[in-house]
Design a protein around this nucleic acid. Structure first.
Lengths: 200, 200
DNA sequence: GCAGCGGCGGAACGAGCGCTCCGCTTTCTC
DNA sequence: GAGAAAGCGGAGCGCTCGTTCCGCCGCTGC
């Protein structure tokens, strides 16, 4: 809801957002701007008046999805068992990427590199803090794991299955199970290297 | 060494291969054909006479790299301890992808989808068979793991770190340690779903 | 109901890609 | 050494993108 817009402009803005959400989810961020405009039933000019750059549009969409995801992570943090809380949050993060190809792309290409997306990334990492702290305190989470590690692990897991149509879209769960086992504190030795530094 | 070529053509063919290896390793498969030709000191026409398609060039390069990798995996298979053998092979696979961005791209976009690369993929998966069988028999490898799972896991792990210049290029080892622990047989439960079917 | 301005659509532009084409050069054969 | 054949370079084609531009349309406020 942007104030001061004519009613038709307001309506078109909304249509573009809906269309972008659909198309990005289906095809990832490489989807063409023309296709989004077609899906929205508007011209590309209209789209560009509201979102001067494709990245601006992506930011709007990703910010929306992020709000939902943050809520899920906060809900997971309310679970009593520290490990179950972590597991639930990891599955929510992975699920939101698996269900939305645009979100996966955004994590690698935008969240992790573009300054404009910095605050989104920070909010996501902050949401993980209490979960990680609690898991560490309870001795269920492997030593040395930081929120950013979980973000990178989840993204990597979601992208593991080949993206062919004949592959079960839930296959990432197979690999998530392996990673989650590897994340549990146990006989495992110390991890090599530290977590990556945040982008400047 | 292609027979029946004029000596200058032979020399240029070799130069193109060397240049392609360098450029693909540095920039991944999205690197432009023009850049390879420039690096090789030839025109694009020359390149295209020898390799009618960019994919033909990629195939030649990847086949070379694959030969080296297969040798390393076979060497790992000779290690007595079954788990150490698996671990060594996984590290070799990941290392060859980490050192060569073109190789990572090839695994996802070509090895796993294009029919022309089918025999390369089959050879890679076959090389894993004895390692996996031995690990299973010895009870050190988690139940249900297939060679293709290891390929997908290794590729996913290599791509986990953000690809920024200020990130330690060995960071993938951090995540590989987690995955390897998850792959060990242990108290862990059964994996959900089966391995993906091969591309038709 | 009308003036005027915000909004509209989509043709077109420029950059980047894989790839082709063709006039010229180099090598090979005898 | 000369003729033929093979090879060469790189301008340019056709395509796909993100983005811009501009003549027309239709809300809005009076």
């Amino acid at each position: 809801m942007e104030a001061g817009l004519r009613v038709d402009a307001q309506r078109n803005r909304e249509r573009v957002l809906v269309a972008a959400r659909t198309v990005f989810a289906r095809q990832g961020l490489e989807a063409g701007v023309d296709e989004i405009a077609r899906e929205a039933g508007v011209g590309v000019g209209t789209l560009y008046r509201r979102f001067p750059t494709k990245d601006d549009l992506i930011l709007a969409i990703v910010a929306d999805g992020m709000a939902v995801l943050l809520e899920e992570i906060r809900a997971a943090a309310a679970i009593e068992d520290p490990w179950e809380a972590l597991e639930t949050a990891m599955l929510a993060l992975a699920e939101s990427m698996a269900a939305d190809r645009g979100f996966v792309d955004a994590v690698r290409e935008h969240l992790l590199t573009l300054p404009a997306f910095l605050s989104l990334r920070d909010r996501l990492l902050s949401a993980w803090e209490p979960l990680v702290a609690r898991g560490r305190a309870a001795g269920v989470l492997r030593d040395g794991i930081e929120p950013v590690d979980l973000l990178l692990l989840a993204r990597g897991v979601v992208r593991m299955p080949p993206d062919r149509n004949d592959v079960d879209p839930r296959l990432w769960r197979r690999y998530m199970a392996i990673v989650l086992d590897g994340l549990r504190a146990g006989g495992a030795g110390e991890l090599p290297l530290g977590p990556p530094q945040p982008a400047r």
